[in-house]
């Protein structure tokens, strides 16, 4: 059973906010890593907003997630400028290195692979993000080398 006392505490933080839902979801995701069924149901009861609506918000914003994600979330840009600079080849290399399709998470929980919309860094296209770090001027080899480093880091921290 997930501990819900921290949800209560977060909901309490926004007691005076008129439209608190997104703030709550943001903080709860930070705390729990993702927005689970149990947690969202608890929020629905606390703030008296139907779960169907909360679930709609949670699935609308791409930075909210209803599934547990890996330690490192790899977000590849798939917009036009990156596409022109062969982001597809980079993505294919990442997919085969991690053994993942987009939106999947490795079994060990280290990596999740996702798309992102334009990051505004088209000058250094193609780009990807790993958590909050941005990497540009990627080639398939360069991208895999970066992920290898993360993999080692992940193992040593484990």
């Amino acid at each position: 059973m997930q501990d819900l006392t921290r949800v209560d505490e977060i909901v309490g933080r926004y007691a005076d906010t008129k439209t608190p839902l997104i703030y709550i979801l943001k903080d709860v995701q930070k705390e729990y890593g993702y927005l689970s069924d149990v947690v969202l149901t608890h929020i629905a009861k606390k703030v008296d907003i139907p779960l169907s609506e909360i679930y709609g918000v949670a699935t609308f914003y791409s930075l909210f997630t209803i599934k547990p994600k890996g330690k490192y979330v790899v977000r590849c840009c798939n917009n036009a400028p990156c596409h022109v600079k062969k982001s597809k080849e980079v993505l294919e290399a990442i997919k085969s290195y991690l053994g993942l399709e987009v939106t999947e998470t490795t079994e060990c929980g280290t990596f999740t692979l996702e798309f992102t919309s334009c990051l505004g860094l088209c000058a250094v296209a193609p780009v990807m993000m790993v958590n909050d770090e941005v990497y540009g001027n990627l080639t398939p080899e360069k991208a895999v080398a970066i992920l290898k480093d993360y993999k080692m880091k992940g193992q040593s921290n484990a």
Partner: peptide, 26 residues
Amino acid sequence: VSAIGLEGRGYNVWVDTPFGKGLDDV
């Protein structure tokens, strides 16, 4: 009652019960 809502975004938007559990569960 609000048993169903609009889920997802953009091209992949659909009407569903929360977490796709089905009407029997809401």
